[in-house]
Simulated scan of single mutants.
Amino acid sequence: MTKNIILSVLALMALALSYFYEVTPARSETPAPQAMQPAITPYAINSPQDMVKALELKLPAPPPAPEVVVEEGFYSKRLGIRFKTDRNKRLVDLATKWIGTPYRYGSNSKRGTDCSGFVSRIYREVYGINLSRSSHSMFEDVQRIKRGNMRTGDLVFFRRSPKEPIFHVGIYLKNNKFIHASTSGGVMVSSLKEAFYRNNFYAAGRVI
């Protein structure tokens, strides 16, 4: 009887101790490996295509390719000259429309014009540039250039001797040809290789 009482008391004590005492598992010295976190992207990576998109987001956008402008040339039927670019097309087209205009001293209209009047009129209408009215003073408006460096639109000046002033001016076209208002033929195209213009050629100038 006494033995049964002792066993019952021990059982109650064990039950009470198990209620107030919590057994925690022993900690491992080696931490458990953590699961790999997915990369932070604007969208989930579920395919190789998604991975390519994610890499593209990290790459800087390539600079835009420079725009290549190809200038086309043109052919002037009235002059019989082909130009490599259309840069001076307006100049050439307008100047050639004056061919046949009679010479008239001190004027610059289609009814008649002198050499400096023709040049100043063309430059004002094509470029919006006001040049001096006389060929002599017009030379002061330009930058002098070598004959071998002449381009379409440059001015050519003439004088009869080193002691005389400039008396004539024209607009250079191409292939030694220039357009001008001649006292004998009005507005016309001539060549710098002609004896008169070859002997009296003074200088070439470029309007800056």
Rank of each mutant, 00 (worst) to 15 (best):
T2R: 11
L7N: 12
S8K: 04
V9D: 02
L10E: 01
A11K: 08
L12C: 01
L15N: 05
L17H: 05
S18M: 11
F20H: 14
F20V: 11
E22W: 09
V23C: 02
P25K: 12
A26M: 03
S28W: 09
S28Y: 14
E29H: 05
T30R: 15
T30V: 15
T30Q: 10
P31G: 06
P33N: 09
P33D: 09
Q34A: 14
M36C: 14
M36W: 12
Q37L: 05
Q37P: 08
P38S: 07
A39E: 15
A39P: 11
I40N: 04
T41L: 13
T41P: 12
Y43H: 07
Y43W: 04
A44R: 07
N46G: 15
S47R: 10
M51K: 10
V52F: 13
L55G: 12
L57K: 10
L57Y: 08
K58F: 14
K58S: 13
L59R: 15
L59M: 14
P60A: 08
A61F: 09
P62L: 11
P63C: 04
E67I: 08
E67N: 11
E67Q: 10
E71Y: 11
G73D: 07
G73A: 13
F74V: 03
F74H: 14
Y75V: 13
S76A: 07
S76T: 06
S76E: 09
K77F: 14
R78Y: 06
I81W: 07
F83N: 08
K84H: 00
K84T: 01
T85W: 09
R87Q: 12
N88H: 14
K89V: 05
R90D: 12
L91S: 10
L91G: 04
V92T: 05
L94T: 07
L94H: 01
A95H: 00
I99A: 06
T101R: 00
R104I: 09
R104F: 02
Y105M: 10
D114F: 05
C115E: 09
S116Q: 07
F118I: 08
F118A: 04
V119Q: 02
I122E: 03
I122L: 08
I122K: 05
I122S: 04
Y123V: 02
R124Y: 08
E125S: 09
E125T: 07
Y127G: 06
N130F: 15
L131F: 12
S132K: 05
R133Q: 02
S135A: 15
S137L: 10
S137I: 07
F139T: 01
V142A: 13
N149E: 14
M150A: 05
R151G: 07
G153C: 11
L155V: 08
V156M: 04
V156N: 01
F157N: 01
F158T: 02
R159M: 12
R160T: 14
P162H: 04
E164M: 14
F167P: 00
N175F: 06
N175I: 13
N175K: 13
K177I: 01
H180E: 09
A181M: 11
T183L: 03
G185N: 15
V187M: 04
S190M: 04
S191G: 00
S191L: 04
K193V: 00
E194S: 00
F196M: 02
A203L: 05
R206T: 03
R206H: 10
V207C: 13
V207D: 11
